[in-house]
Simulated assay, not measured.
Amino acid sequence: MTARRVGGAAGVLALVAAWWIAAVTVFRSTGTVPSPWTVLASVRHDGWALYGPNLGVTAAGAAKGFLWGNGTAVALALLVALLPRLEPLATQLAVLSYCTPLLALGPIVLVVFGGRTPTVFLAAVSVFFTSMVGTLAGLRSADRAGLDLVTACGGGRWQRLVRVQAIAALPGVVGALKIAAPAAVLGAILGEYLGGVDSGVGVALTAAQAAYDVPRTWGMALAAGALAGAGYLLAALLGRATDRLLYGPRRREAAA
């Protein structure tokens, strides 16, 4: 774990160094890539008054889309486990949500509903495919012996799902949530780009670009990345808690 952290820190430092070198050499004349220190100075100048409210609004929209998208995906995957004949239809729906460009769906939702609905909708669509595929894969990974045991004891599909498949699917679901968290943030920002709202990271980015405020544009982009990273971190912590809950007793028994 220590070696991994050291490697991660070294990677971040190398990336910042490459950024700084590019800013003072290749892009020095154009000014389109400010140095890290210039961006940090801009963030400090703008302060929480700019970043706090916008990040909060985007985080709220991403969280709502995250819950709706993942909830729908998991529920549909569980329904497929109970009714296998629905799998082709559910799979086609997931692939359609993945292949359809978000920027093509957003304007339609904006025209029909308006407000912040496109933000939540695009965040939900962004996570649907990953979560459904991860849940289905987890359900299929259930131990065959456990399924046969439940069947031999007179259990049906519901008992097999609750007692064996749902537990086996938890690691896959958590893994999908790790990917879905940053995707939800991206979907929310794209929804804000479409207009119809007056706050959020997407709105702040658009305003900074229109004013050709390059340092603020970079600062807001980094803030969006930090928000996506925070979502991933929360999902990872959930995964660790799930792992300890499921496998902690077994590991302690094996150690004993």
Rank of each mutant, 00 (worst) to 15 (best):
F121H: 04
V150Y: 07
S35K: 04
L86G: 08
A9L: 15
T72N: 05
A94G: 07
L246A: 06
F128G: 03
P101Y: 02
V150K: 00
W19I: 03
G7P: 02
A208S: 13
H45S: 15
S42P: 09
A75N: 01
G31C: 09
T25H: 06
T2Q: 12
A183F: 11
V6T: 14
T72W: 09
A77K: 12
S141I: 08
S42N: 09
R163N: 07
V197R: 07
L246R: 09
D46I: 00
A49L: 03
R140T: 05
W218P: 00
A207S: 14
F27N: 04
Q92A: 14
E253R: 15
P171G: 02
F66K: 02
R216H: 10
A59Q: 10
L105S: 00
A90D: 02
G195N: 03
V133R: 14
T217R: 06
T2L: 15
P182S: 05
V111Y: 12
N70Q: 13
L170T: 13
L15W: 13
V80W: 09
W37R: 13
T100K: 01
G191E: 05
L246D: 08
F27R: 03
G219M: 04
G219K: 03
G31H: 13
A22I: 14
A169G: 02
G106D: 05
S131A: 12
Q92E: 02
F121D: 00
V74L: 14
L102D: 08
A169N: 07
T38G: 06
G56L: 07
A241F: 08
V120M: 12
T58E: 01
A208E: 02
N70H: 06
A142M: 08
V197L: 04
R163G: 05
I108R: 03
Q159Y: 07
V26I: 11
T91Y: 14
Y232M: 06
F129A: 01
P53H: 02
P118E: 03
V109S: 02
A63P: 06
K178D: 05
Q165T: 02
L67R: 07
A166I: 05
A254C: 00
V214C: 03
P107I: 12
G239I: 00
T72Y: 06
S29N: 15
P34Q: 11
S35M: 09
G172Y: 10
V197E: 01
A224E: 06
V127K: 04
K178L: 01
I108V: 15
A73C: 07
V43H: 06
A204R: 09
L122I: 15
P36I: 06
